[in-house]
Design a protein around this nucleic acid. Structure first.
Lengths: 83, 83, 83, 83
DNA sequence: GTGGTCTAGACCACT
DNA sequence: GTGGTCTAGACCACG
């Protein structure tokens, strides 16, 4: 069992974060749609949206209504001022 | 060609109106979902929603967000102003 | 008094087991919700959940979070090791 | 119509914020339960919880799982270093 | 055809 | 008996 999160959405969020970290979802590319992810993980949209909200709150993805979600480039234009 | 409507949504609207008129969709019952109707008529949601808007504008159905559409009872309590 | 159980939850568990055994709750059908059963037996959720846990531990029902409880088919595909 | 928010939960959030601002819900007192507010506003728990999340995000209330929500005292102990 | 919001109702964990 | 999370499915607004 995971020792840090309880509930489906939290565990899914962890999985998705790893995919971004590991480059499975590369910066600048689009994530699969909510529907596709729901089908893959076998959960409802409500649950998946909760997981994706965590990714967005963590700054890993950006959401564009009507279009989809894109993996943020950590060296991209939204980063304010690296040393 | 039809003599009363030319766009796809208008023709679908006419079909659906007949179904209400003919009692295929009885007063007080729910219409099939947008998805189901899209599949049946082979059109996109945008088109179907335009058709359904016509039904609502004509006072044949009422739309309940998050629930669906219901056929209005023409003798029901919600009729605003009969002549 | 009952001769097999003494706590409220145990007595309720016995009642529910009989309902499954007697086919009042048929295999494959859903049990009433926790709320409904609480109302019927006049107990709190904690008590009822303890009773239902006994049913699940006895392999009579399966619990599906967010959906409800279903009576297990003793001859169904989920049976682990028939002779 | 409101000019700043669209959707039931946003409008309910505004109403509840006013109640806190106007002292209808006084600092240190408990808010009505989710169920009670759902009944009053005629929405589902999902929708009400979205509205209440907005109050919490705005720092107007604190949520204690298993207990309820309490109106934050703006001069209370969480305020850092008053004169 | 995406994400955004809502309905309706369930079980779960903790107080 | 509260808040927390989940299932299942609908309609809505925008691109």
């Amino acid at each position: 069992m995971s020792s840090t999160a309880r509930g489906a959405s939290s565990q899914i969020a962890e999985s998705l974060k790893h995919r971004v970290t590991d480059g499975v979802y590369a910066p600048g590319t689009k994530l699969p749609s909510e529907s596709a992810l729901c089908a893959e993980f076998g959960v409802t949209r409500n649950t998946m949206r909760r997981a994706l909200s965590a990714l967005e709150k963590a700054g890993l993805v950006v959401t564009i209504p009507g279009t989809g979600r894109t993996v943020r480039d950590p060296d991209g234009p939204t980063r304010p001022s690296p040393p």
